[in-house]
C-alpha cells in the first residue's frame, strides 16, 4: 500500500505549526498505524530530516499514551481502539490521511503530535483517590460488594486517561474522564466517606484547567477506546448536585 500523510509539525510549544505532506510506500496492511509512522520516521532519519515526535508506549491499547487525531477523529476511524491498535488494513491504497495532535487549550502541544496532558494528573491529585494510607486496610472480604456494582465500577475504572474524550468533544470538555473516576469511587462503598469532597474538588480542578463544559453531544463516549458510558457524566452531575445542594 501507498499512503499519503498530512502531519502536523510544530517544533515546540512556542513555535507556529503547520501540516506537512509525506508519502509512505511499502505499507503492509498488517502494520499498526504507529508502525507505519515508524517506517516514515526511519525514512526521514535516513534522509537527515527530523523524525516526527509522537507519544506511544505500550502499543497494546492500555497505557493511554498514543494520541493521534486521524482524519478528524481521535484514534482514527475504528470504535473502541487506540491509535496503536489501529491497523493499516482499515485504510485503502492511496488514501490521504490527516494526522493532528489532540487540540485543547488544556493540552498544549509539546512538539509535533505530542501534547501535555498533565492536567489530567492534577485533576486526579485534587481528589481522585480514597484516602487510605498503606497498612490501614481491613481484610478485603470484610467488605462485600455486589457483583453488578463491582462490575459497573470496573467499567468506569477502565479509563486509560488518553484524552480522546477531550479531543473529540467540540468543547474540549473533560467531563467523561473526570466522571469515570468520580463514578468508580462513588459506586464503591470505600469511596463514600469522601464522595462529596471528591466531586467538588475534581470538578473545581477540571474547570480551573480550562476544559470546556459538557453539552451532551456524546462524542466523548463514542470515541472512547474503552467505551466509558455517558451515564458516568450523569452520575457525576448527581454527585455534584448532592454535594453542593445537600452537603454542609
Amino acid at each position: 500500500m501507498k499512503i499519503n500523510l498530512k502531519v502536523w509539525r510544530q517544533k515546540n510549544n512556542k513555535a507556529k505549526g503547520e501540516l506537512k505532506d509525506y508519502k509512505v510506500d511499502h505499507v503492509s496492511p498488517d502494520m499498526s498505524f504507529l508502525e507505519m509512522f515508524d517506517v516514515l520516521n526511519e525514512d526521514l532519519i535516513t534522509k537527515g530530516d527530523d523524525p516526527i515526535t509522537f507519544d506511544h508506549d505500550c502499543r497494546e491499547g492500555i497505557c493511554g499514551s498514543c494520541s493521534m487525531h486521524i482524519n478528524g477523529r481521535p484514534h482514527g476511524p475504528l470504535a473502541g481502539v487506540t491509535t496503536c491498535q489501529l491497523h493499516m488494513r482499515s485504510f485503502s491504497d492511496g488514501d490521504t490521511i490527516v494526522v493532528e495532535p489532540w487540540r485543547a487549550g488544556a493540552f498544549p502541544v509539546n512538539k509535533d503530535l505530542s501534547v501535555d496532558r498533565s492536567a489530567f494528573d492534577r485533576i486526579i491529585a485534587s481528589g481522585g483517590f480514597i484516602s487510605v494510607n498503606t497498612g490501614n486496610a481491613q481484610d478485603a472480604n470484610n467488605l462485600p460488594i455486589g457483583k453488578e456494582q463491582a462490575d459497573e465500577a470496573f467499567m468506569s475504572a477502565a479509563c486509560i486517561g488518553c484524552g480522546a474524550c477531550v479531543a473529540a468533544c467540540k468543547n474540549a470538555s473533560a467531563m467523561l474522564f473526570v466522571s469515570a473516576k468520580v463514578s468508580q469511587l462513588a459506586l464503591l462503598p470505600q469511596g463514600q466517606p469522601e464522595a462529596k469532597m471528591r466531586v467538588m474538588a475534581m470538578v473545581n480542578q477540571m474547570d480551573a484547567e480550562g476544559f470546556g463544559s459538557c453539552t451532551n453531544t456524546g462524542a466523548c463516549s463514542a470515541e472512547c477506546p474503552k467505551g466509558i458510558d455517558l451515564s458516568n457524566i450523569a452520575r457525576m452531575n448527581r454527585e455534584f448536585f448532592s454535594a453542593n445542594l445537600l452537603g454542609k
Partner: peptide, 13 residues
Amino acid sequence: IDQCVAQGVPFAR
C-alpha cells in the same frame, strides 16, 4: 489485596 481493595480497586467478585 486488602490495601488495594481499600483504595477502590475493582477486583472481580
